[in-house]
Amino acid sequence: MGFADQRFAVNLSILFTELPLLERPRAAAAAGFTAVELWWPWPEDPDPPRAELDALRGALEDAGVTLTGLNFYAGLLPGPDRGALSLPGEESARFRANVEVAADFAASVGCRALNALYGNRIDGVDPAAQDALALENLALAARAADAIGATVLIEALNAPESPRYPLVSAAAAVDVVDKVNAATGLDNARFLFDVYHLARNGEDIGAAIAAHAPRTGHVQIADSPGRGAPGTGSLPLERLLDALTAAGYDGWIGLEYKPGDRASADTFDWLPRPATTG
């Protein structure tokens, strides 16, 4: 096993960002990838003009790449926000306005995984009230995802970079997964296993794989520290991906790492050649 045995999807919201959005799918295809993923591409607009959605769909189709993962609206990413669904008021309303928009777009391009970032804690707001709002909105998202045959992903982030985000362990995120599934009865909520975030939290990643692989719906990687390409840090990523495979995970591996001062296309030298990317 190893890197050659995995299916990699390049995240176009962190790689190839030196190019305009609509040029990134073709650049990923030129680098050998058949699959890509995206954060919500309009961070200030949960319901962008139809022409912009159509243009992105066309860019994916013209490049011949499959969109394997898409975030729901999550506020300003990258930036101060870490999701909107647990935030009372306008941001929660923006998330709800985005649910059907994101699900419809995902359905139109064959995407079957929608990531729902939880959102930061807010001063002066009862955490229990935020959690209740989050569960309500995640159930709404799960029902919309179920209607298109998709899963909703719940992600743990890391405390050093996201100190106000409440899901900073695999167990915390999986607990929300279980609550969503219990609330809807649909069993289509899954854990987004981001190896980089768990490493930055100091988790035993091998133990997390053993405990949570059955509930894992998607995996993302970057090396740690630094969030660079595999081989730029200290994580044994090849061994960890082998462990995930052995534990039964056979889905896509999202490449969500920073290219540093290199062009994105020059950061894939760690992949076997010819690259096994889909």
Results as ranks from 00 to 15, higher is better:
residue 50 R to M: 08
residue 65 V to H: 11
residue 115 N to T: 09
residue 125 V to N: 01
residue 67 L to C: 04
residue 134 A to M: 12
residue 228 G to L: 02
residue 251 G to F: 03
residue 230 P to K: 06
residue 23 E to K: 13
residue 167 L to F: 08
residue 6 Q to I: 00
residue 164 R to E: 15
residue 156 A to I: 02
residue 210 A to I: 08
residue 115 N to P: 05
residue 39 W to L: 07
residue 161 E to K: 01
residue 171 A to E: 15
residue 3 F to A: 05
residue 15 L to H: 04
residue 66 T to E: 15
residue 261 D to F: 01
residue 192 L to C: 09
residue 119 G to Y: 03
residue 79 G to T: 03
residue 226 G to C: 05
residue 278 G to T: 06
residue 263 A to L: 04
residue 218 H to N: 13
residue 64 G to T: 03
residue 274 P to M: 13
residue 21 L to C: 08
residue 62 D to V: 11
residue 117 L to H: 14
residue 94 R to C: 03
residue 146 D to F: 07
residue 268 F to D: 12
residue 82 R to F: 12
residue 160 P to R: 10
residue 98 N to W: 01
residue 135 L to Q: 14
residue 231 G to S: 10
residue 89 G to E: 15
residue 175 D to G: 10
residue 8 F to P: 00
residue 180 V to H: 01
residue 134 A to P: 11
residue 3 F to Y: 12
residue 131 D to E: 14
residue 260 G to E: 01
residue 86 S to N: 04
residue 194 D to L: 01
residue 228 G to I: 01
residue 208 A to Q: 15
residue 266 D to E: 15
residue 236 P to D: 15
residue 85 L to E: 01
residue 169 S to K: 13
residue 47 D to F: 08
residue 159 A to D: 13
residue 46 P to V: 13
residue 12 L to R: 02
residue 122 I to M: 10
residue 7 R to E: 13
residue 83 G to A: 13
residue 99 V to A: 00
residue 32 G to V: 07
residue 200 R to W: 00
residue 200 R to H: 04
residue 19 L to K: 02
residue 74 A to H: 02
residue 142 A to G: 15
residue 141 A to R: 09
residue 275 A to M: 05
residue 155 E to M: 09
residue 1 M to I: 00
residue 217 G to N: 11
residue 18 E to I: 02
residue 249 Y to G: 07
residue 181 N to R: 04
residue 154 I to C: 07
residue 162 S to P: 04
residue 23 E to G: 14
residue 255 L to D: 05
residue 214 P to H: 05
residue 79 G to I: 01
residue 113 A to I: 01
residue 134 A to E: 11
residue 105 F to M: 09
residue 73 Y to L: 06
residue 260 G to R: 03
residue 63 A to F: 03
residue 202 G to L: 11
residue 195 V to S: 07
residue 122 I to P: 00
residue 186 L to G: 11
residue 40 W to R: 04
residue 244 L to Q: 04
residue 26 R to P: 10
residue 101 V to D: 10
residue 43 P to W: 09
residue 276 T to H: 06
